[in-house]
């Protein structure tokens, strides 16, 4: 019984952590007033660059050092790619779904194109060796209950995810930067009138979302596959849903990501759990569970949900 729970929690991390990281990224963008539906594309870009990096470097190094370097690559790639969105949405004041959709189209196509161009064998999958799994964290892994739950069969990215959550909540609510960022998403004119550079704050929001989404792409691919095939299977859109589900607030995003992750784990691992297996429910129904459950929870919890007021509205300094 306990083993099943340990297994479920370990599995849940693989689904929840990338959603958490990417949704938190989206939060920074939307709280600054820029809707970012390009999360999917940015994840692909981050995952592609970092997996390609791992693919190229794995003959020289392995393990956590390589993973940490790959994380840096993913973050930088995500930021660079999101800059395209920021430029169109902020500087050019275009409709924010336009550049988002464009990036979502470009990223996977470019990932396939580049992979087939760069790789000597001309295939679109980028292979990598998974040398990053931690069997058991020294000391911590031996703690009863908590050890197997959190510190066995895990990845360093799990802890990075939690760290990002704490830092995000702190930055958003306890720092001057966070206050200004939120002001730009609620009432940019007011923010501007007290001397905040709205454009700069929005650039910062989008770039943070790019960094986290890029990272999220890598975090998603590492435990779930042994190659990168130009897709993150809609996780960017799911993260967008988690962001809205979490009502643009870090703590709620955390809950939403883990709720969804748990449902997803049950859906994919039910055959390993004798109780669920014996119910005789077909797999297609299980696969629908996370999405239906989310809708049901949303139906009861959204009455007072309110997006950042200025999200989606390009800021024009000269407008009346």
């Amino acid at each position: 019984m306990m083993d099943t729970i340990y297994f479920l929690v370990q599995q849940m991390m693989f689904f929840s952590i990338p959603l958490l990281i990417v949704a938190l990224g989206g939060m920074f963008s939307e709280r600054s007033g820029v809707i970012n539906i390009a999360l999917e594309g940015i994840m692909v870009a981050g995952a592609f660059c970092s997996i390609l990096f791992i693919n190229g470097m794995e003959s020289r190094m392995s393990g956590q050092l390589l993973l940490l370097l790959a994380i840096v690559v993913a973050v930088v790639a995500g930021m660079a790619f999101s800059l395209l969105h920021a430029y169109a949405a902020i500087s050019l004041r275009s409709d924010q779904t336009i550049s988002g959709t464009a990036l979502n189209m470009i990223a996977p196509a470019a990932a396939i194109y580049l992979a087939r161009m760069i790789q000597p064998n001309g295939v679109q999958q980028v292979q990598f060796l998974n040398t990053f799994r931690i069997e058991k964290v020294p000391l911590l892994g031996d703690i009863p209950v908590l050890g197997p739950l959190l510190f066995q069969n895990c990845y360093i990215t799990t802890y990075i995810g939690f760290l990002i959550l704490i830092v995000s909540a702190f930055v958003l609510y306890k720092t001057r930067f966070g206050l200004r960022l939120r002001a730009c998403g609620e009432h940019p004119q007011a923010a501007d009138s007290v001397g905040i550079n709205v454009y700069r704050m929005r650039y910062a929001g989008v770039l943070i979302s790019g960094a986290l989404a890029g990272l999220g792409g890598l975090v998603y691919v590492i435990p779930t596959s042994t190659n990168f095939n130009a897709t993150v299977s809609g996780y960017g859109f799911l993260a967008l849903a988690v962001l809205i589900f979490g009502q643009w607030k870090p703590r709620r995003i955390f809950l939403a990501a883990f709720f969804f992750g748990l449902m997803k784990t049950i859906a994919s691992a039910y055959s390993g759990i004798s109780f669920l297996q014996n119910l005789g429910i077909p797999s297609d129904i299980y696969k629908m569970v996370p999405f239906i459950a989310t809708l049901v929870v949303l139906a009861f919890s959204s009455k007072r949900s309110q997006a950042p007021r200025a999200a989606g509205v390009p800021y024009d300094k000269g407008a009346r």
């Binding site: 967008l240 629908m288 999405f291 949303l298």
Partner: peptide, 26 residues
């Protein structure tokens, strides 16, 4: 969902995409 329950249309639509896909298969 949007009109009566104030659920953002993007999230409902994304969820219904997946429900539709798995539901149709089922």
């Amino acid at each position: 969902f949007k009109a009566l329950l104030n659920v953002n249309e993007v999230i409902t639509a994304i969820m219904l995409n997946y429900i539709g896909m798995y539901g149709v298969n089922y």
